[in-house]
Amino acid sequence: MNMLEIKQLDVWFGHGHNRVDAVKGAEFSVPEGESFGLVGESGSGKSTILRAITGLAPEWSGGITVNGERLGKQRRKSFYKTVQMVFQDPYASLHPRHSVDQVLGETLALHGFRDIDARVVKLLDDVGLGQKFRFRYPHQLSGGQRQRVAIARALAPEPKLLLLDEPTSALDVSVQAEILNLLVDLRKDRGLTYLMVSHDLSVVGHMCDRLAAMRHGEIVEIMDVAALRGMQAQHAYSQELLQASV
């Protein structure tokens, strides 16, 4: 079964003369348990697709089907139990005045969990942080630690589909390796489906099974990771991307 199906998706911002078409006729599907990558340069519309799925980009048309359910304009509460997102910049995605405990506790409470204390402890262990980080504030954490908290928050409602928006591009390479390993393990342990956006082909090559290359809001090519590793891109633009990243 497909966890995510995108059909003829258009996303735009603004109206009339100011209308900018960020995504034009995107079409792909991600089977359950797969990891799918979206690559392209800045402004290619790859992150916008994630925002349209989550409902953060309100102006879209076409079809988005998640876990067999076709999405309307409004997202139901149950939607957020299926789909969660990890943002690019861990320095911007945590509330500066909320401790780790508050961040995770509030998320769990919003999803109606009762055993919040036990779950906070468990989540921190799952993302490799442990108890001693529970009552810290974001400014007391490094970038990698913040991103682990953000991942813990996304895992809290026990989602099936995780949207990853350049989760390591703001981090040092050694920290990137730790976070990518964590994401690989989490997917294996929990049978998660990933949709990952990145500008870094080697990261996508490491994390994903298939990927779509985007340019100017359009998907120019969908290929599997073997083709990527073998440098066998069909479309001229994806070849260009490949050349530039080695």
Partner: peptide
Amino acid sequence: SLPRLDAPRDHLEV
């Protein structure tokens, strides 16, 4: 610790 297209691995070196 860098992921490499030409040398796939399950886990990156930490």
